[in-house]
């Protein structure tokens, strides 16, 4: 922009050019600075989603897909009982995972924020919780297999302890293992925002509650919990959207015996039924967005940073 400022008036003196440059630069600078992010998100997020919406109206056969405008992808999807069952199953995973991670996340964050007193220990223990997040999800899932399997660690120790005499079959490749893996993978997404919210609570408020005669439980319920709501909302958004869109955890941990929407889409993709997958994806996106908007009513994210 400095170029245009100077070349547009080649006869201007250097001083005049400088004045214009100073005035012009602050006005265009934000647009230039935001441009790389904007272009990336438009090109790799918005345009692909619009592509999915467009393709969801296309037609296909076993060989290729055709540009068209048909509603069959949607009617087939929404009239099939399999779709509804799969949605219910996915919602079940989302609700269970949400409830468990919320319980764990709140307790862990509460311990770190209010019971660990030295800041150094707080940071160290917080890091201990976050490090697994930086490692591969697939590896973290696989690592449950020797633990939960028929001859796994848990079954063999239960048998040798004499608690059971048959290996428990429900431990691996079941809804149990799917939810367990979800909790294992995503509990952190709950811990971090809740911890962040709790750390911003003014400690004077808690002292005031105590001075006013509130018990620890009353303080927790009436002071800490309401002030932690934004963190809970952000954590919930993360956990619910991650579970709703998941397919790899369900595939690996249910051993192919359970279904989720993500898995349904992935299967359609592998069968090259792209328009069907696209219609399914559009419906999934709508469902996820509705859930997120509902949760956003609790919190204004921009204020939480």
């Amino acid at each position: 922009m400095t170029l245009t400022a100077e070349t547009s008036r080649p006869s201007a003196t250097a001083a005049a050019g400088r004045v214009r440059r100073v005035r012009l630069l602050p006005r265009v600078a934000p647009y230039l600075q935001a441009a790389p992010l904007t272009v990336t998100l438009l090109l790799f997020l918005l345009v692909p989603i619009l592509t999915i919406v467009a393709v969801s109206f296309w037609d296909y056969d076993s060989v290729r897909i055709y540009p068209d405008f048909v509603l069959t992808n949607y009617t087939e999807l929404l009239t099939s009982p399999v779709t509804w069952k799969t949605y219910l199953n996915t919602l079940k995973y989302a609700v269970l995972t949400w409830a468990i991670t919320l319980g764990i996340g709140f307790t862990v964050a509460y311990f770190l924020a209010f019971h660990v007193r030295s800041t150094t220990w707080q940071m160290v223990l917080f890091l201990v919780c976050t490090i697994p997040f930086w490692t591969s999800n697939i590896i973290r899932m696989i690592s449950w297999i020797p633990f939960l399997g028929r001859n796994g660690l848990l079954n063999s120790s239960l048998i040798s302890a004499g608690i059971i005499d048959q290996p428990l079959e429900f431990l691996l490749f079941s809804d149990f293992s799917v939810v367990l893996a979800f909790v294992h993978l995503y509990a952190l997404f709950m811990v971090v925002p809740i911890f962040n919210s709790m750390m911003r609570i003014d400690r004077a408020l808690i002292e005031a509650a105590r001075d006013g005669g509130a018990s620890a439980a009353q303080t927790l319920w009436n002071v800490i919990l309401p002030l932690t709501k934004p963190g809970i909302a952000i954590g919930s958004i993360f956990v619910v959207t991650l579970v709703m869109g998941d397919f790899i955890t369900v595939r690996l941990m249910s051993g192919g015996q359970s279904a989720s929407i993500g898995l349904m889409i992935a299967n359609e993709i592998s069968l090259l039924q792209y328009p069907a997958a696209a219609a399914n994806a559009v419906v999934l996106l709508a469902v996820v967005l509705i859930m997120v908007v509902a949760m956003l009513r609790v919190v204004d994210i921009r204020k939480e940073l």
Partner: peptide, 10 residues
């Protein structure tokens, strides 16, 4: 928020 598989597919 958009599920990863949508980004991939899109």
């Amino acid at each position: 928020i958009v599920p990863s598989i949508l980004v991939s597919l899109g």
